[in-house]
Amino acid sequence: MARREELTDEQWAILEPLIPETPRRDDGRGRPELHSNRAVMNGILWVLRTGAAWCDLPDRFPSGTTCFRRFSRWVKSGVLRHILEALAQHLEEVGQINLSECFIDGTFVLAKKGAQRFGKTKRGKGTKLMVIADATGLPLGVHTSSASPHEVTLVEATLDEIVTVGRPERIIGDRAYDSDPLDQRLAAKGIELIAPHKSNRKRAVTQDGRALRRYRRRWKIERLFAWLNAFKRVLTRWERCADHYTGFVHLAFSIILMRRYL
């Protein structure tokens, strides 16, 4: 029986076709890889779930150096994003992704060491993790940025990271997203923005009361963040490279999506 942090046979059957084997060099030089993709992925998942350092990997996994190097290669070549994209698009094809209303929110992630894409806030130096979820709370896209910019300025960049073929019909956010210019830009793309008005709004009320009832279901993206927090490596950012941190989030979201497969 597989341990909790390791892939089951059913999970690996889904992931294996999405992970390419490393091609040999044309000149035949270089050592062949000693460890299978499944063994390495199990090691990466152990780090993702526990939040431990690569050097602390138990002996039942390949070495931390081996797992980190392959993880880094998969991030650079887009393998981890491709896995998330393939899983989401399959669920979209079979009708398990609902784009009629989607939720957006951001969370602050404390960044340790020197890092790319991090900034100062009242809570310290960190990264802003922006996430979009579908009507059922499944992850559709993630964008990492410096924690300094306001969330309303990161909405369109987050929309660009959506991995499904279709695009949201409505985006639901909290008061931070109450912005007439953003509302107009999204409307030009065929997306309705739904957000409660800020208490200091000076212009006339623009939010329809009936549409605003959808805001009551915003707890679904809060639940998604709770699911994500089960993967300890994303709770605090230890990666200097922003793409490595995003890669961990892509992998965590892929594991969440696989629950719909099995």
Rank of each mutant, 00 (worst) to 15 (best):
V40Q: 13
N42T: 03
I191W: 08
G247L: 07
Q116G: 02
P168V: 05
V40G: 13
A53C: 10
L48N: 04
E161G: 03
A13Y: 01
H82P: 00
K202Y: 08
P32L: 11
T65N: 09
D9R: 04
D27Q: 12
S36Y: 01
L186C: 08
D174S: 06
T66D: 10
G126W: 07
Q96G: 00
K232C: 14
Y261T: 01
G95F: 11
T65R: 11
I162Q: 09
A133H: 02
P58D: 10
Q89W: 01
E85S: 13
V94N: 01
A204G: 04
P139C: 07
A147T: 01
F103I: 04
R203A: 11
E192K: 13
T50E: 12
G166A: 12
L57Y: 14
D174W: 02
E5W: 11
A53M: 12
A133Y: 01
D59W: 07
R175D: 03
A230H: 14
T136K: 14
T22A: 13
L99A: 10
L182F: 06
L186K: 11
S145H: 12
L15F: 06
F108Q: 10
R237Y: 10
I19N: 04
R216L: 11
Y245V: 00
R70V: 05
L224N: 08
L18R: 05
T50Q: 13
F118N: 15
G166E: 13
L84W: 04
S72L: 13
Q11I: 02
G106M: 06
E10H: 03
V249E: 04
